[in-house]
Amino acid sequence: MTARFIAPAVMGLLMLVLWEAIVRLAEIPPYVLPGPVAVARTLVADWGMLAPALGVTLTITLEALAAAVIVGVLLAVLFSLSRWVELSLFPYAIILQVTPIVAIAPLIIAWANDVDLSLLICAWLVAFFPILSNTILGLRSVDHNLLALFELYGAGRWKTLIYLRLPAALPYFLGGLRISGGLALIGAVVAEFVAGTGGNASGLAYRILEAGYQLRIPRMFAALVLISAAGIAIYLLLSLLSHLLLRRWHESAIGPEE
């Protein structure tokens, strides 16, 4: 258990030391490659500008994730209740999924007429498919004998959905949610790049673009570090949520020593 944290931590530390050493020994200028110390300094110095940007990106990410959960689960339930709805809609969900977001982002930005809304739509588009497809899989992965039992006791579609299909789908949904959390962040960042907006409420991607134009490479790195940290934090939080919800009963959340 501890090895799971110590091993990557030691590895990361070694890489940082190596990076710093190379930058210093080869005397690489900071506008080509800043060392970790310079990046950390910039992170602190520019915090007043980077923190609000992080807030903007995280807000879009979380809103998109929430929308992905709502739409993904509702659609999955709808599909599971009606074969016809699924047959007629699922192909379009796939088309949305396989179309590269950078290709449709300009369209969405032009149509939505509102930067925040268009960013939200882009991030949502990227995030919602894993939730949809995983939840559908989960709703279908119900023990058929349990289904027979529900039929025997005269449970209708709704009771079967609430007491059987939804709980059975929970582990699958949570697996999809973990993937979607990261994707929502990627979607938000990519859309920001495409939108390339200025204004007073700009996210981290715009800060990276801006720093690139100004050749402030350490700031680019600092913004990058924040995006990675946000992604890792989202993943860890969703993993924790999954563990808390499943630890009582699902194999995936039960350690070997128990």
Partner: peptide
Amino acid sequence: GFVFQEPTLMPWA
């Protein structure tokens, strides 16, 4: 009442 070959319990309950 019906009893299957497997216990067929709901693992979340």
